[in-house]
Amino acid sequence: MNDTSQSRLSSKDLTLGYATSKILEHVDIAIPDGKITALIGANGSGKSTLLKTLGRILQPIEGTVFLDGKAIASIPSRDIARALALLPQSPISPDGLTVRQLCRFGRHPHKGMLARITRHDEEIVEHAIAATGLTDLTERPLDRLSGGQRQRAWIAMALAQQTPILLLDEPTTYLDIAHQLEVLELLRELNRKQGRTIVMVVHDLNHAAQYADHIVAVANGGIHAAGRPTDLLRPALIKIVFGVDAMVIPHPIDGTPLCLPFASGQ
């Protein structure tokens, strides 16, 4: 089904890394529209680099990222910012910014050079805050939010940006399990209700299995495999991508693949 789906964001023959040390080579990737895509891979495999390159934070050494069929390097940055938003792993914000003030920055790509925030912008901002369940915390400074709330505030900013595509770099790091699920549930809801395309780097294989429609496994300097979680997550693949033995069973609740790694040898 992935082969037939549309893809606004794709790449052709990407080579990433530094001139002296290439991290990924010959990457061809197509992000399926309206789906949740998870990038998985071992530490240092280059999954984050790939995500940042798709979000034009990094430039590839060779190859091209395409947005709506145009080379992303040829599109004005502001136009890209209306189509895709990227949330870094540990974003840094100006001191003392409140949730509302943060989200207002999301309107930037839609405004002229010196235009002020309008009533219409303000409505979109409040909508984004409501969608992330932060309405009661609208006027609270970010540094007084919990980790999970802060992550949701950043997602709210990306929502206020009103981009059909949302890229997230490990959105659940530094969060405890409850907050991890909270963020993942939010992303699923955004995907299902608003039809946003979501691409995220995830560390936890089972999160990828449960929440993603499409998984891209990065290993050995390239994309090792891509496909639906149920097709893709097999012991053999886990062995290649992460170097561990694992058992894969159906999740008792929703039937998604559940990976149980175990130490080999002993």
């Binding site: 934070i57 940055s77 938003a85 990227l86 974003p91 100006p94 910014l97 930037h108 010196l114």
Partner: peptide
């Protein structure tokens, strides 16, 4: 002054917002 607040973001966020 109007752009000053944005300076507090890291570069990756700025790029994502379409700000150079």
């Amino acid at each position: 002054s109007m752009k000053l607040d944005a300076g507090g973001f890291a570069d990756d966020t700025l790029i994502s917002l379409g700000i150079s």
